[in-house]
Design a binder for these strands. Structure first.
Length: 566
RNA sequence: CGGGGCGUAGCUCAGCUUGGUAGAGCGCUUGCUUCGGGAGCAAGAGGUCGCAGGUUCGAAUCCUGUCGCCCCGACCA
C-alpha cells in the first residue's frame, strides 16, 4: 500500500468525548469514526486490524473443528417467544416491525436461531456433536454505550454454539473451546487471563470469561497470589474459615447512638473497627416476605450470590424502606439480628465474629458485646458477600488480589435451557428422542481491537503486536526533495518486500520527516525502515522497532530487513 | 430510565451574561521558501450557529418545545 493512495485521517488533536486511551487513539489514528451513539464506521486502516483478529479467530475455530455459517441478523419474534426471551431481554434488544406488521428483533445473540436451525437440520445422534459458529454484527441497545468500540451498541462478535448427546461430550467440547480461546488470545498478542464467571441471563452452569488485563477494564477479577484460582468478583466465592466464633467475653449492652446510621459513622462514634460490626440488610424473600442478610461491617453484598440462595427472591431485590420500617419499628440505620422480626441469614464472615456491634432495632441505639447463639439465634450461614483484596484464596493457596480486565471472550456450558424450551430432539442409538446438551462460546471481535490497544501504547500512539498490525513494516524515504537515490531505494525495497509476501506500506507522500514519523508512530506500525542519503552512503538502512528507544543501522538489503521482521 | 452538561466551519472551541456585519487555532486549496520528529510567509475555499415555534424593528445570543450527543448512576462480547 502506498500512503499517497491511502486515506490516513490522523489527527493531532484529541477528540472531545473520548475518555479512555484506546478510544482516543482509535479516533486519532483514524481507525474508526462515530456515526451515532455506540455506532462506528470502521475505516480502512481500522478494518484491516479487525480483519486480522477475525482471521485468527476463524483459523483457530476451524482448527478446533467448528463449522462456520452465517445466520440472519434480523430474526422473527416467534423464535424469541419460543425460548421465552422475547419478554426477558427487555430494552436491550432492538425490536421493529416489517411491512406486514410482524415483530422482529435485530440479533443481540443467536441461541434461538441456531437451535432452530439444528432442529430442522439434525435428526440423528450420528450427526452430533457439532459446533457451529459465525462472525457477525450484533446489536445490543446498551443503556449507556461508551468507550468507543469497547462498549458499542453495534459490534462484531464471533458466536459459536455446540450440540451434544450428553454432558461428557459437552464438557469435552467446552475444554476444546477453552484451548482454542487460549490459542486465539495468545496469537493476538494479548496479556489475558481466563477466570470463572457468572453466566448472567444467558443461563447455564459452568462458564469462564477470557479477560484482557488492562487498567481501563470494566470488570474486577479476583486472582490468587499463589494458586491458580481466578474469578470475576461477581462469581468469586468466599469460604467459611472453619473456625468457631470466639467465645463471648463481653455482656451485651445498649449504646445510645443518636443520628449514627451508617456502619462508618457507628464505627467512628463507638471507636470499634468496621470488622467488629454486623450490618443487617433486608431483602425480598423467595416466599414473598422479607429476609435479613447479615454482613460484616466492612463487606458488601453480592447480589448475584444472594439471588441464588433458595430463601432469597430471584432476581435479587432490596425490601422497600417503608416495609422494613413497618416490620422493625425503626429506621433502616439501626437494624440488627437481635430480637429480629424476620429470619436472618449470615454471611460466613459475619457469623464468625463475637462481641460485635450491631443495630438495636430501635431508633438512635446500637448494641455492643453481641454474640450469635447467646443473644440471638444461630443464623443459617452462606456465601453472600463480594470478595475483597486480601481475602484468603478459595483454593487455600495464598490470598486474593484484584485485577482489572476487559471481557474479550466468554464460554458457557448451557445445558438444555434452549434445546428444551425450543423442543429440539434427536434420535439416539435406540431410536429414542433425546434433548441435546448445548454450549456457547463468544468473542467480542471488535472489542478485542480496542482491548489490545489498552495494553499496548505509548505517548506517541498505538503499538500493534505483529499479528494484528494493519501493516507490518513502513518504508519511509527522507530527503526525497533532494535525493532521487533515497526515493529509488525506497521504491525498490517496498517492491521487494511485497514480492516477499510482507505487508509493507510505503510513505510516498513526500512529507517532511516529522509528520511521517508521527503518523507511523500513531498508527502503530511495528517495524520502520528509514531510507536517506546518509545511510545509503554506507549502504545502510535505518531500522527501528516501534517499541525500541533508538534506531539501528542495518545493511541496505531486503534480506537484512526480513531478518529484522523475524 | 433517573441526575448533570453540551449542540456555532471537516476537527477542537470562543462569541451568548448585556440581542445589531459570525470568529480563532488545527485541517483543506494555491504559490514561494523549508526538509531527520507534527515548518514559515502569502493568498484562498468553507458555517441558513441541531431543528421547530415564539418575543423583537432586528435572535447564534432571550423564551418554549423537540431531536441528537456526552458524563455520573445496581450486569454485557
Amino acid at each position: 500500500m502506498r500512503l499517497s493512495r491511502f486515506p490516513l485521517s490522523t489527527t493531532k488533536e484529541t477528540p472531545a468525548d473520548a475518555e479512555i486511551i484506546s478510544h482516543r487513539l482509535m479516533l486519532r489514528a483514524g481507525l474508526i469514526r462515530k456515526l451515532g451513539a455506540g455506532l462506528y464506521t470502521w475505516m480502512p486502516l481500522g478494518l484491516r486490524v479487525m480483519r486480522k483478529v477475525e482471521t485468527i479467530v476463524r483459523e483457530e475455530m476451524n482448527r478446533a473443528g467448528a463449522l462456520e455459517l452465517l445466520m440472519p441478523t434480523v430474526q422473527p419474534a416467534e423464535l424469541w417467544q419460543e425460548s421465552g426471551r422475547w419478554n426477558v431481554m427487555g430494552d436491550e434488544m432492538l425490536r421493529f416491525k416489517d411491512r406486514h406488521k410482524n415483530d422482529f428483533a435485530y440479533s443481540p445473540t443467536a441461541e434461538e436461531a441456531v437451535t432452530s436451525h439444528v432442529r430442522q437440520d439434525i435428526r440423528s445422534y450420528k450427526q452430533l456433536p457439532i459446533n457451529y459458529y459465525q462472525i457477525q454484527t450484533k446489536f445490543r441497545d446498551e443503556r449507556r454505550p461508551r468507550f468507543g468500540v469497547m462498549r458499542a451498541r453495534e459490534f462484531v462478535m464471533k458466536d459459536a454454539y455446540s450440540f451434544h448427546m450428553d454432558m461428557d461430550s459437552l464438557v469435552a467440547e467446552y475444554y476444546n473451546m477453552r484451548a482454542a480461546y487460549t490459542r486465539i488470545f495468545t496469537r493476538i498478542g494479548a496479556d489475558f487471563r481466563a477466570v470463572q464467571a457468572d453466566s448472567g441471563n444467558i443461563g447455564g452452569a459452568a462458564s469462564e470469561e477470557f479477560h484482557i488485563l488492562a487498567g481501563a477494564g470494566e470488570d474486577l477479577l479476583a486472582v490468587s497470589t499463589e494458586g491458580d484460582y481466578a474469578a470475576n468478583v461477581e462469581a468469586a466465592i468466599t469460604r467459611a474459615s472453619g473456625l468457631p466464633a470466639p467465645a463471648p467475653i463481653a455482656a451485651m449492652e445498649t449504646v445510645s447512638t443518636p443520628g449514627q446510621k451508617t456502619c462508618e459513622q457507628v464505627s467512628k462514634f463507638m471507636n470499634v473497627p468496621l470488622t467488629g460490626k454486623v450490618k443487617l440488610l433486608v431483602a425480598k424473600a423467595a416466599d414473598g416476605g422479607l429476609i435479613g442478610i447479615a454482613l460484616r461491617g466492612d463487606h458488601e453484598l453480592n447480589e448475584i450470590k444472594a439471588a441464588k440462595h433458595p430463601k432469597i427472591a430471584s432476581p435479587f431485590e432490596m425490601a422497600k424502606i417503608e416495609d422494613v420500617q413497618a416490620g422493625f419499628g425503626c429506621e433502616v440505620g439501626y437494624l440488627g439480628p437481635v430480637k429480629c422480626p424476620i429470619e436472618v441469614i449470615a454471611d460466613y464472615a459475619a457469623a464468625e465474629i463475637g462481641d460485635f456491634v450491631c443495630g438495636a432495632n430501635e431508633n438512635n441505639a446500637h448494641l455492643k458485646g453481641v454474640n450469635w447463639g447467646r443473644d440471638c439465634a444461630e443464623p443459617e450461614t452462606a456465601d453472600l458477600r463480594t470478595i475483597v483484596e486480601g481475602d484468603p484464596s478459595p483454593d487455600g493457596k495464598g490470598t486474593i488480589k484484584l485485577l482489572r480486565g476487559i471481557e474479550g471472550g466468554h464460554i458457557f456450558q448451557l445445558g438444555q435451557k434452549y434445546t428444551k424450551a425450543m423442543n429440539l430432539t434427536v434420535l439416539d442409538e435406540k431410536g429414542e428422542a433425546v434433548t441435546p446438551q448445548m454450549g456457547c462460546y463468544g468473542i467480542g471481535v471488535s472489542r478485542m481491537v480496542a482491548a489490545v490497544i489498552e495494553q499496548s501504547f505509548d505517548a506517541n500512539g498505538i503499538i500493534w503486536p505483529d499479528a494484528i498490525a494493519p501493516f507490518r513494516v513502513i518504508v519511509t524515504p527522507i530527503g526525497t526533495d533532494k535525493s532521487q537515490a533515497a526515493k529509488d531505494a525506497a521504491e525498490k525495497l517496498y517492491a521487494d518486500l511485497i514480492a516477499a509476501g510482507v505487508e509493507a506500506v510505503l510513505d510516498d507522500r513526500g512529507l517532511r520527516p516529522g509528520p511521517m514519523f508521527a503518523d507511523a508512530d500513531l498508527i502503530g506500525i511495528p517495524h520502520r525502515i528509514v531510507i536517506g542519503d546518509k545511510g545509503l552512503a554506507n549502504s545502510q538502512f535505518e531500522y527501528k522497532h516501534r517499541r525500541a528507544e533508538k534506531a539501528e543501522m542495518i545493511a541496505a538489503t531486503v534480506a537484512a530487513v526480513l531478518a529484522k521482521l523475524g
